[in-house]
Deep mutational scan, measured.
Amino acid sequence: MPSETPQAEVGPTGCPHRSGPHSAKGSLEKGSPEDKEAKEPLWIRPDAPSRCTWQLGRPASESPHHHTAPAKSPKILPDILKKIGDTPMVRINKIGKKFGLKCELLAKCEFFNAGGSVKDRISLRMIEDAERDGTLKPGDTIIEPTSGNTGIGLALAAAVRGYRCIIVMPEKMSSEKVDVLRALGAEIVRTPTNARFDSPESHVGVAWRLKNEIPNSHILDQYRNASNPLAHYDTTADEILQQCDGKLDMLVASVGTGGTITGIARKLKEKCPGCRIIGVDPEGSILAEPEELNQTEQTTYEVEGIGYDFIPTVLDRTVVDKWFKSNDEEAFTFARMLIAQEGLLCGGSAGSTVAVAVKAAQELQEGQRCVVILPDSVRNYMTKFLSDRWMLQKGFLKEEDLTEKKPWWWHLRVQELGLSAPLTVLPTITCGHTIEILREKGFDQAPVVDEAGVILGMVTLGNMLSSLLAGKVQPSDQVGKVIYKQFKQIRLTDTLGRLSHILEMDHFALVV
């Protein structure tokens, strides 16, 4: 994948999101292997301009796509893939009243899908469409860049269908997702969380590099694949309309690839034109409109599966009536509230959605109805927002919020430890010299600072030695090549209790 991002070429006709291997024109390309080798690009942008032909009021008969309808489940399912879809609609009884809503608040519980998330729908649909058009064949390999849930859905379907599955996901995604993927037989590649989507090191860039190296491999490409919004247009939206008897006044959905909100909203605009569509985008993402909503100094966020630093091709923002931004604290607070007060075992993005819903639905009156999409299960986040310690460490809970008995030293300040200034190293000294210094002084790690004293990161003896043994660096290389740029900081005025929580999850903390 090139470091400079080429513009994806656009073909003359058809839909841009065809499933299957992508040609340089962004659509299915038939021909000899030699032709494909000559024409197939190194990668295709996940934010390529959409060429979708959908228009409100256009006859369904003019759609270029294969459409399906929700099917009634048999008493005995032939395999677990038949437990994807037909998820329950559940009334939220307490939270709406707590925040003064007059309307009825309903939750579409997508964590009841077989793999635990709304992404099971698009995973199965992308595979079925690729099999139907002859792209996927027995023994082929599926590769997908994902925040985890699409990966789980694909790995689940691949396990049943017999495909090899490789999932490329950023490091910030939970260990629970990784464990589930491994249990399903998927191979996992992790990428830096802070890598831009168009960087060769991003999950998108690495996935395309693997595709170019592995024979008979395919990126189904949830960011561009029409099967993504079509899955929701054909099934999720129809289920909502049936469950609500066609009567709903507002739908609120958090947005990642945009397939969920695009597919549902398009069908609702056709069948229930008075329904307002509300999009939820986390602070630090750029999906919301108008652009002024996205202006923030924050560039990272903890909530998973929603928000991006690019506009995915499948996201149709014209069908969203209003956007709201959400933050991590309210997302996790509301997710825990949904679990504790409503018994809905949902993930953090569901918290984002409901946090926005109780604001947006203030305009609705008694007798009206708001539906929220709860995308995934708490299963993926047992060591994250479900953990009091994690919430404390991230600053989303305060010590006084917890009532468990603490040891005698818990409320003492870090400054009472009488710490001395640490050994520091410059980023320009060599790895070999740094190892000598650390061994001589008896230290395992040291902060790396520039000549102005600005902290650049941390270097550890173990990481340097393993990097040297693996051949990633040489003793003569500058130590700046092996620094940890993500590390926890703590102030002298913070409590030892807070430091204790940090050290339970990290090997060190830097006192500043």
Rank of each mutant, 00 (worst) to 15 (best):
E62G: 11
A237K: 04
G258E: 03
S254C: 15
K102Y: 03
E34R: 02
K108S: 03
I261G: 03
A159P: 04
R164E: 07
T5Y: 15
D79C: 14
P16N: 07
N228R: 00
K30W: 06
F112T: 06
K211L: 09
H67M: 03
S19V: 03
P12V: 11
R266Q: 08
L81V: 08
S117D: 05
V90P: 01
R182L: 10
A237G: 14
S123C: 03
I44G: 02
C165F: 01
G185T: 01
L181H: 03
K108G: 04
P145E: 04
A158D: 02
E104G: 09
A114G: 13
I219L: 10
H66V: 13
K83F: 11
C244T: 05
P6R: 03
R91D: 08
A157F: 01
S50R: 02
E201S: 15
K97A: 02
A60F: 05
Q243G: 02
L156R: 00
K25L: 11
S202A: 11
L268A: 04
A231T: 12
G205A: 02
K39R: 13
P49K: 09
R276S: 03
E40V: 09
H65F: 00
F197I: 14
R224T: 11
L101W: 04
H17S: 09
D234P: 01
G14Y: 11
H22T: 08
H17F: 07
E176N: 03
L210G: 05
R45L: 13
G14M: 11
K25I: 12
Q242N: 15
P46M: 01
P33A: 06
I264W: 00
D133G: 05
K137A: 09
S27C: 12
K269S: 03
T13F: 08
V10N: 13
L42E: 09
N212E: 13
I84A: 08
M173N: 02
A253Q: 09
E270F: 09
D120T: 05
A38K: 09
A114S: 14
T193W: 07
T87D: 05
G274T: 02
Q222R: 01
R161S: 12
K72P: 09
N194Q: 10
L154V: 06
Q242K: 15
S175F: 12
G256R: 00
G20H: 12
Y223N: 00
R18K: 15
P49F: 08
T191S: 02
